Amino acid sequence: MSDRPDESFLPRQVPIDGYGAKFFHFAGMSHAGSLLALPSGLRPWAPATWDELDASSLAPILAEAAAFELLFIGTGRDPAHLKAPLKQLLRDAGLRFELMPTGAAASTYNVLLEEGRLVGAALIAL
């Protein structure tokens, strides 16, 4: 897999098969670090912790906002709140979003993806 954060691992959405301490499994692959699962595919995501989340880390999500309806944001192990300016960026892009611990976000993403819903996930690694 590539270390370049702008390169997709997989050019389509697939379920997250598993996750653990700093890793995700999907489509027979394993990735260490945070992960974006968007309509364009799965790829690395820069923030390693919730505190690193900023407007630049939302840029790839905002670029695809018209391609999906709902974004699940995995906050790591614990629940967290999104700063008001970041919430506004997502809302201005027309995205609905839900914040929850990463495990719950990955599971909910999988269920809605299976149902054929237009979803995305931005998952901070545990």
Rank of each mutant, 00 (worst) to 15 (best):
Q13P: 08
G18E: 12
Y19N: 08
Y19L: 15
Y19Q: 12
K22N: 08
F24P: 09
H25D: 15
H25E: 15
H25K: 14
F26H: 01
F26A: 04
F26S: 00
G28A: 09
M29A: 09
H31S: 10
A32G: 12
A32F: 13
S34F: 13
S34A: 13
L35W: 11
L36K: 06
L36S: 07
A37V: 12
A37K: 01
A37R: 04
S40I: 08
G41M: 15
P44T: 00
P44G: 00
P44K: 08
W45R: 08
W45S: 07
P47N: 03
A48G: 15
T49Y: 02
D51P: 03
E52Y: 01
E52D: 13
L53K: 01
L53S: 07
D54C: 09
D54T: 00
S56M: 15
S57A: 15
S57P: 15
S57V: 14
L58M: 07
L58A: 03
P60Y: 00
I61H: 00
L62W: 01
A63G: 08
E64R: 06
A66F: 00
A66G: 02
L70Q: 04
L70D: 04
I73R: 09
R77V: 13
D78H: 15
P79R: 11
A80K: 15
L82I: 00
L82G: 07
L82P: 04
K83E: 14
K83W: 11
K87Y: 02
L89P: 09
R91Q: 07
R91G: 07
L95V: 10
L99V: 01
T102F: 03
T102G: 00
A104C: 15
A104F: 12
A106L: 12
S107W: 13
